[in-house]
């Protein structure tokens, strides 16, 4: 039905019907932008209600303007509708996007990892969930803060804003740690690359190494992961991002550098006749432990700084 037909059917002039239709076209447009098309039916019901209300008036453009004004701006109505109708998905905590959601009961995330997203997932003390949607791909990651809270190492509200009160010299530790792990990789490569055979293992299954590549191409992935981690870290520091973002970038870089080191060390061990993946798994465990210890230590330093600040303020007030 076009506006003229709507108007005629509801006793409105074409101009009045045009106003109503323009309003609801804008609501539908805003819903499309917000990727919340499920509200469309509710909006159609509302349109019917508007026409019913206008049927009890003279149907002038002034009547239409008054009735539509009661609904508020079309964009605000669309936002309110999508907020009410959208199911409270766990991924809402991490922002809504068509690139994130759940598939077969498992969360997926296809947006490029940023230090901010790392921070939201890996260190969220107020979220009691240990498993959180994976930073990139399908599955789950660890919320290190929830583990720390569970172990009684910190409380969910210890810091007003995570790491905000940590002195700069301690924040620098979060950058130095992945740099140190990257240096270990450089030392490993310098020591063993020349000694490796032409073909080295690049993938391991339950029964040991099951995929091989030339030692030159096998080096590409570890080096690329290390550079990616250090790159994200560098951007966070050069742009002077928030302490939480910088620490999260440090944690991500530490993990990426450790995975690279672990994979390279396993290549060396496999090339020398080692059959199992103990080195790979042990070093990955070390990487997780290093990241956890770094995050918990910085959180406790942040808490201590906040406590000191508040107790000093209290004693100053008391002595005045």
């Amino acid at each position: 039905m076009n506006p003229q037909e709507h108007g005629a059917a509801n006793g409105l002039t074409p101009e009045s019907a045009e106003l109503v239709e323009t309003y609801f076209a804008r609501v539908h447009g805003a819903l499309l932008v917000a990727a919340t098309g499920e509200c469309a039916e509710a909006v159609e019901d509302l349109r019917g209600h508007v026409y019913e209300e206008l049927a009890a008036t003279a149907g002038t453009t002034a009547d239409v303007t008054r009735v539509l004004a009661e609904l508020g701006p079309p964009e605000a109505l669309a936002a309110a509708c999508s907020d009410t109708a959208a199911a409270p998905l766990p991924s809402d905590r991490y922002g809504r996007s068509p690139l994130t959601g759940t598939i077969l009961g498992m969360p997926y995330e296809l947006r490029f990892p940023t230090a901010e997203r790392v921070a939201l997932r890996w260190w969220d003390p107020t979220n009691p969930d240990v498993l959180v949607p994976r930073l990139f791909g399908v599955g789950w990651d660890l919320n290190f803060a929830a583990i720390a809270v569970g172990l009684g190492l910190i409380k969910p509200d210890d810091e007003d804003v995570p790491f905000a009160s940590v002195p700069e010299r301690w924040l620098a530790v979060s950058a130095a740690l992945p740099a140190a792990v990257a240096i270990v990789l450089v030392v490993l490569v310098a020591s063993f690359q020349g000694l490796l055979p032409a073909q080295v293992a690049v993938h391991w299954g339950i029964s040991g190494a099951d995929r091989f590549a030339s030692k030159g191409s096998a080096l590409i992935l570890p080096v690329a992961m290390t550079l990616l981690g250090l790159g994200i870290l560098g951007v966070a520091w050069v742009r002077r991002r928030s302490p939480l973002t910088r620490v999260a970038a440090g944690a991500l870089a530490t993990m990426l550098c450790t995975i690279s080191c672990a994979a390279y060390a396993q290549q060396v061990v496999t090339a020398r006749g080692g059959g199992d993946t103990a080195v790979l798994l042990s070093l990955l465990g070390v990487g997780l432990a290093l990241t956890f210890v770094m995050l918990v230590t910085l959180a406790r330093i942040g808490r201590a700084a906040e406590v000191r600040r508040d107790l000093d303020n209290t004693s100053k007030k008391g002595s005045v």
């Binding site: 003390p125 107020t126 979220n127 009691p128 969930d129 969910p156 509200d157």
Partner: peptide
């Protein structure tokens, strides 16, 4: 606790 702490924040 999972409800209270995010709200306090």
């Amino acid at each position: 606790a999972g409800t209270v702490y995010p709200l306090l924040s």
